[in-house]
């Protein structure tokens, strides 16, 4: 695989590094500044949190696809790994977060601040 396109591989690695760095810098900058219109508004959670989550998934995609070379694996091997993990994680997170919200609604009124 790598023999076919020798230097472009190295170039692509540095490109992805640049991209991951930029994404991280954006995340950190937003995390420090916390603009009010993003921090205090949003659906479900704040827009800022949605931005963080989406940028995290972008980073995860590039790490898995380029660094771990998932893009070069056979289609169904890739799916066996990615679909399994993604499905189970979404399932688990959904159930636990719903439960967490329920616990809050049930227990929070009992706390006297």
């Amino acid at each position: 695989m790598a023999h076919a396109h020798d230097n472009s591989n190295v170039k692509r690695i540095w490109m992805v590094f640049g991209l991951l760095s930029v994404v991280t810098i954006v995340e950190v900058a937003l995390g420090i500044v916390k603009p009010d219109f993003l921090h205090l508004n949003g659906i479900g959670t704040s827009w800022l949190n949605w931005i963080f989550i989406i940028l995290t998934l972008v980073k995860a995609y590039y790490i898995t696809w380029t660094f771990m070379h998932m893009e070069g694996e056979k289609t169904w091997f890739r799916r066996a790994v990615v679909w399994t993990a993604v499905f189970l994680i979404i399932y688990l997170v959904t159930l636990l977060l719903i439960e967490g919200g329920y616990l809050f609604e049930t227990l929070a009124p009992l706390v006297r601040w």
Binding site: V93, L97, E99, G100, G101, F104, L107, A108
Partner: peptide
């Protein structure tokens, strides 16, 4: 996810 659950539980 357990961290998320606990955080939602004490979200305030």
């Amino acid at each position: 996810a357990a961290y998320g659950l606990t955080r939602f539980k004490f979200i305030d």
